[in-house]
Amino acid sequence: MSGEAATDPAPAVLGHPARPPGPETSLPFRQFIVKAHGRCNLACTYCYLYAGPDSTWRTRPPAAPADVLDRTATRIAEHARAHELTDVAVVLHGGEPLLAGADTLADFTTRVRERVPAGCAVHATVQTNATLLTEERLAVLAEAGIRVGISLDGGTAAHNRRRVDHAGRPSWPAAARGALLVAERFPESYAGVLTVVDPTLDPVETYESLLALEPPALDLLLPHGNWSAPPPHLGDLRHGDWLCAVFDRWWAAGRRETRVRLFEECVALLLGLPASTEALGLAPFDAVVVETDGSIEQVDSLKSAYPGAAWTGLDVFRHTFDEALRHPGVAARQTGAAALAAQCRACPLLRVCGGGHYAHRYRAGHGFQNPSVYCADLQRFIRHAAARLTAAAALEPTQRDGGTP
């Protein structure tokens, strides 16, 4: 919007659970997802953003103009100062953020670092499909202290068959080049790989192919879907069984070959330790999005539910991030079990499952106060992890260095 008012119509449906009675106790945002570019050079067949129900991206500028980025940096610093934050995360996202240029991403990140108060660390990451990564661009990102997260569905061409460009050509050759370049030349910049679970693929083969890319971390994301638009292949616990198979391969490896966020956060929750993932648990959610026109929105995954689901009506030119904290959708994700369906609140897995991903709870006419469409799959996976952890707890002690007692 570059200084003009937001023009999106207010969505006809909100569907967020009402804030429970009592004083407002919003947590500040600490994660700022900045849409450096709103288009993508790929056209993945399952993309919830470009192939989903929400098409607001069509009305927005392809790249974030300079004034939007400048104002966003100021708003982030303002929020950090107001809440005395010691750490904030800046996630450079898209679309494909590298379409904006590595220099633009570096300049923006530098601007945020210059404007936040002294003592506030800025953790910057770019999330890319890896096809545009070159040695020169990676050097620019590394110099700016921007880590690189990569989106891939496995470590082979077959695994990535749904990740194609706008002409239908496979993205894998370019993505593989980019991923290996990060792993081999810029390992200190390598944040990890995000993979959308495809239950038609062999789970262990997929996991092992990803290990070949040497990621320091992986996350396995359930495909976005909900009760009104169920994800493909839902039923017969295929997603849950897929996760269990990978968990067993990871758990029994004899060494931690890579960090798997979903698995490790599940272990944390089972043991009563702090955890933070959208997929599990009851931790308050503290991320907010700035679109290429400066609109302040909720996270993109909500757009898989219905058109305008992420809309707030706010923008960085006229509003502070504090005003976004009062949006009912933001508030609902900070109230823990109070925002969940009665069935979830009565479930013995509540503190671990947490109702699953917020977007997966949606049902037209019922809003978001429902169990996850993946409820049965999550139960299968969580109980499986709990059983493995219980069995491990019965093992004999050994030395911390792995030697014999």
């Binding site: 995360a89 996202h93 953790h123 995000l194 996350d219 994301l221 009563g272 503290d286 993109d300 995954s301």
Partner: peptide, 21 residues
Amino acid sequence: DSDEPLDLELREMLWGFDNSF
């Protein structure tokens, strides 16, 4: 086959946004 009870590095910032690291 859901009503059965589950028995209570792992840390420093916890970043909960799943569509990145």
